[in-house]
Nucleic acid binder design. Sequence first.
DNA 1: TATTGTTATACTCTATAACTATA
DNA 2: TATAGTTATAGAGTATAACAATA
Lengths: 162, 162
Amino acid sequence: MQTQRKGTDRRPEQAATAGLEFAGLDKLLGYDLRRAQGAVHRAYLVALGELKLTQKHTAVLWLVEANPGVSQGSIGSALEMDRATMMVLVDRLESRELLRRVRSKEDGRRRELHLTNAGQRMLRGVRERVTRHERQIKGLYSSIELQQLQHLLQRLQNMDGG
Amino acid sequence: MQTQRKGTDRRPEQAATAGLEFAGLDKLLGYDLRRAQGAVHRAYLVALGELKLTQKHTAVLWLVEANPGVSQGSIGSALEMDRATMMVLVDRLESRELLRRVRSKEDGRRRELHLTNAGQRMLRGVRERVTRHERQIKGLYSSIELQQLQHLLQRLQNMDGG
DNA sequence: TATTGTTATACTCTATAACTATA
DNA sequence: TATAGTTATAGAGTATAACAATA
């Protein structure tokens, strides 16, 4: 992703890229958020390495383990994904044999999600790497800053009436 | 995107979704960031409405206007997109006649990007809506909080050595 | 009738690799 | 040889609509 650095050693304040004029783009909160999320997601994928699991896939495994038998729909709405989107995602995790769908006995429409043994094992490995990754990014902040940042981010999450 | 709200009017603190156990997932900075970015992006699309422009498309138009004749590559690296990814994006903006590619006279390999008149007009409309949208999300914060938030987010952006 | 999951479909985003043309 | 752009292709993400089974 990163090729090589460009000659000069000046610390680029905003425009890392050859003196492009940003014209206030970088003053937009939406822009800052998108950039930050992009950087963190890239670091996440690197940290997960050969486990090859995206943030969302991790979130699903994580929630299924913490809520054995949870339905696709619950996970979907917790993670703000469409039913059809959830299908694809769960199909994928199921084809990697990380979880199973089991038809519910109380309500035949529901499919209960459970981790397989491989899924449990995977999640243990994932947790290790997530911990390292979180340590890396949280290391950029003092504990007060971190608390502030998370608090401020959480305010955005409830915007649309989550 | 939003279908209809579910009966109850309680303000959900974290788990909007029927008491799911999060098991620390929501303590991860990466998770908070992704959620916040998702919410803001959704609000962005709503704010842009019939203009139908994503954050990235907006960023490209914005930078092209501020840097007339800039090359695809410069924009791409400023926005951390692959050359091929940039192609698709610019193709799309060009087919909507919002910008033009012009072969550079100094370096025949380069394509200079310029906004069309329609592109300029579009960008004016976009700016209006972006302003409203930014006012909406920034309205969640005091000016000190906002400054802190942006400052803290910017620290993440430079993580991988951008 | 409403809900859960499913399938089919389509569109977008992203990246890799091979290619062209310029330098 | 290296760079900017291009094309083909493929995979993943997301969403809409129609449908089946169940409630």
